[in-house]
Amino acid sequence: MSQQSSGQAPPTHLKVILSAQYFMFFGIMGIALPYFNLYCYHMKLSGFEIGIIGSSRSLLIILFSLIWGILADRYQNRRFLYILCQFIGACLCTLYLIADTFISILCVTLIVSVFYAPLISFIEAFTMDLIGDNKHTYGMIRLWGSILFIVMVLVVGELLNHFSYFIIIQMIVFGYFIQAFVAITIPSSQKKKNRKTKPSLNVLKRTNVVVYLISSFLMLVSHGTYYAFSSIHLELLGANSNEIAIYWALGSIAEIFVMFNSRRIFQRFQIESVLIFSFAIAAIRWLLMFYASEVWLVILIQILHAFTYGTFHMAGILYIDRCMPESTKTLGQAVNNAVSYGLGLMTGSFINGYLFETVGSHYSFIFSFVVAVFAGVLLWSVVERGVKP
């Protein structure tokens, strides 16, 4: 059984503030993730062009999440940078309202991504710091993001029955500004030491950390078809906007279930065991997606998102937090986010953009299956050798 500290629970008002950050971040994602690529598709962009936009965005997230993370740890000014990125990003996001070609949408995506890049790693670092020894409460705080994700997926799905796809962009812009004002409520969490603290990168060279990051990268590569082309895949199978909304909402409902039970999960199982289990379920999920040709079956398979995202994400955040010394907490989460949701999704989007155009979305899931199996075996081999932080 894993060992968890049992310190005093964080105050209610603090949990509300932290939950609000996830609430807004994933609420906007509930619009962008299922529908932005669908918007691009209806703007007559090709699968390859959509893949370029997704991979280019991920490339900047990789680079700038690291840059912002290093600055936050070096100058101990995470809160200032967090709020700054929120407001500048929101203002730049308004340019989507006039972008109507591949080049213009790509350019806006690139400049917005510079300031969007560090947001989730900052939020994760704030949360890990502020909840102290009560790491098992992370899931209960994080699940509020999934709740608004579900609501926005369903709302936008219904709105698309009555309005044009341009409403997707309007709602994303509006959401960014609300998120920026919510960011002001976050308290400072970094412990004041010297004016400048040079974060050490040596911890990132440890075998267990390197293997985890490679496996995490591959996990998100395997999700490339899912994140970039699921909505389009469903539409090609004959799904309507309500069915697409149900598909995405069901995934978040499933992940809420495991987040709600995060305390029980991590008190009973080692973090490494949860990670390996998540890889196994991912492989099964992508294989089932390859064979599924009915809309209802594809929607049902979405329940497995509870494990390929829910348990995997929680275990990954806790694992990196456990590995990182105090002076590199922000950088650690930034590297984790950059390697997985940055580099992993960039690679996955690019490869699957090509596969979508050449062999179709069904066979793209075979590629995802192979990648997930390899990643899981890689991590398992290191855990079996007893390599730990």
Score class of each variant (00 low, 15 high):
Ser273Leu: 06
Gly139Asn: 09
Arg74Ala: 12
Leu71Tyr: 12
Ala334Gln: 02
Phe163His: 07
Val156Phe: 03
Val258Met: 07
Ile28Gly: 04
Gly51Lys: 08
Ala315Glu: 08
Asn352Thr: 15
Met346Asn: 01
Ser273Tyr: 06
Val370Glu: 02
Ile246Asn: 01
Gln302Glu: 15
Gly344Gln: 09
Val258Asp: 02
Leu110Ala: 13
Leu14Cys: 12
Val209Thr: 09
His136Pro: 00
Ile301Gly: 03
His305Trp: 08
Ala239Gly: 05
Phe26Trp: 13
Val156Asp: 02
Tyr226Lys: 02
Val383Thr: 06
Ile246Ala: 04
His162Gln: 11
Val210Trp: 08
Gly386Ser: 05
Thr308Met: 03
Gly30Val: 05
Ile103Asp: 06
Ile103Pro: 04
Glu124Thr: 04
Ser121Cys: 11
Tyr247His: 15
Asp321Val: 04
Ser278Cys: 06
Gln170Lys: 14
Gln3Ser: 15
Phe122Asn: 07
Val387Lys: 09
His313Cys: 09
Leu14His: 12
Gly54Thr: 07
Val387Leu: 03
Ile244Leu: 14
Val151Gln: 01
Arg57Phe: 13
Lys198Glu: 11
Leu287Thr: 13
Arg206Gln: 15
Val173Lys: 04
Thr311Ala: 02
Ser65Phe: 01
Ser19Pro: 09
Ser19Met: 13
Ser278Asp: 03
Ile103Glu: 11
Glu49Cys: 12
Ile244Arg: 12
Ile232Gly: 00
Val221Thr: 07
Glu384Trp: 01
Leu300Glu: 00
Pro10Val: 04
Arg78Val: 05
Ala334Gly: 08
Ser56Lys: 07
Gly348Asn: 04
Ala249Trp: 07
Val182Ser: 12
